[in-house]
Design a protein around this nucleic acid. Structure first.
Length: 137
RNA sequence: GAAGUCGGCUGGACAGUCGCUGUGAUGGGGUUCGCCCUGUCAUGGAGGAAAGUCCGGGCUCCACAGGGUAAAGGUGCCAGGUAACACCUGGGCGAUGUAAAUCGACGGCCAGUGCCACAGAAAAGAUACCGCCUGUCCCCACUCGGGUGCAGGUAAGGGUGAAAUGGUGCGGUAAGAGCGCACCGCGCUGCUGGCAACAGGAGUGGCAGGGUAAACCCCACCUGGAGCAAGACCAAAUAGGGAUCCUUAUGGUGUGGCCCGCAUCGGAUCCGGGUAGGUUGCUUGAGGCGUAUGGUGACAUGCGUCCCAGAUGAAUGGCUGUCCUAGACAGAACCCGGCUUACAGGCUGACUUCCGCC
């Protein structure tokens, strides 16, 4: 188990691309309920084991992320916080910022169960998203 | 040394690196001059329970603006502490334990009402099923006596039950009975100690009286309601409202190059209400730490010192390395004081019992 965790290094210094921003500022988040609704109205949905992902093309020139983890996922606030942090951290480290998409991640109860695998799942998830607009342009 | 009881503290550590968020300083850009965006440096960033939302307050709005009563709800041995409490401290009483200690809705069923399954004679103004005793009728025996029925006496004994109208002993009696006596228990009245709860002891009454008030109820005391999504401020777009002024049907607006035609009934300015959204409330407080004094203690007072999260789709994290005992329960959301529940370990103080040694 510990070996698997080490096999998924995220923000190693050598992986960083120079000149590219790695922060996660407020401009890169979806803040308003109306913004959430706009994305969800597009019906561009994909599903993975732990999440429902909705996307919509935006005019911002960079990606914006919105996360929804309800009490249905877990009653414990600690678990919900952990899920949110993992999403944010992997979003940041995979440079998804460069794509002009609004992304809304809705967690399912499965997200609360697996801790190590969640990280793997998120990694492939962001990778797929980065390839997505290339196919369509 | 072993077993145990009651507290107190702690809640992985260190280094590097990439982030988030508050504050301060400083540079750049924008600006409606309120501030906003952005870079650098410094620095702060979850808990003992942040939890359950079970009590008590502060704060805010609404109601009453003075008092009382009723309803409804809560509290319930005594004294103290506190802003307040259902909390805490000390004490009393009862229960458990060898003990340290722990636990207790711990006021009132001689104000009233209700309930007490099954069993049992009887479950509450006691009662006579068996038994015991007396009298009497009849029968058997005719020596003591025995039996049946009837009329009484009796709460000693039996059996039932969670619980049966004080307990033990002696006297007493036909048999019995607080019927009498002694001790215990209980009630009442003084006395002594204590602020009090209560305790001790004295006299007195032959003895009242089952349990249940987390049954209604009675007594004493307490309580207005809703909550930061409270509340305050700023305020687009759209629709609608009001005021003033202007223009009037030979008019205005829309359609259209223009006319005819068709549709429609105003226009301008200002004002307040108010939605999205934003700002504020929002962290200096019954505050922490140290110390001195008073108090058995909870705690109080004085002095010194510190500023210790403030987010708002919601920060406090990710990764790498090293170490060990391998990290439990768990995430602030207006703020305090409690209670309750969850919790891997580790450190530490006081006390009790037993064993060993001097």
């Amino acid at each position: 188990m510990l070996g698997e965790l080490k096999g998924v290094p995220d923000c190693l210094p050598e992986k960083r691309v120079p000149g590219q921003h790695h922060g996660f500022e407020k401009s890169q988040r979806l803040l308003k309920p109306t913004a959430f609704r706009q994305v969800l109205r597009q019906h561009h949905q994909t599903r993975s084991r732990s999440f429902t992902i909705s996307t919509a093309v935006n005019q911002q020139g960079h990606a914006r992320l919105g996360i929804a983890v309800s009490r249905k996922v877990s009653k414990r606030a600690v678990v919900r916080n952990r899920i949110k942090r993992q999403i944010r951290e992997t979003f940041r480290c995979h440079h998804v910022t460069s794509v002009a998409l609004d992304i809304v991640l809705i967690a399912k109860p499965a997200a609360a169960l697996r801790k190590v695998e969640l990280r793997k799942e998120l990694a492939t998830l962001w990778q797929n998203l980065l390839n997505y607009p290339v196919k369509h342009c």
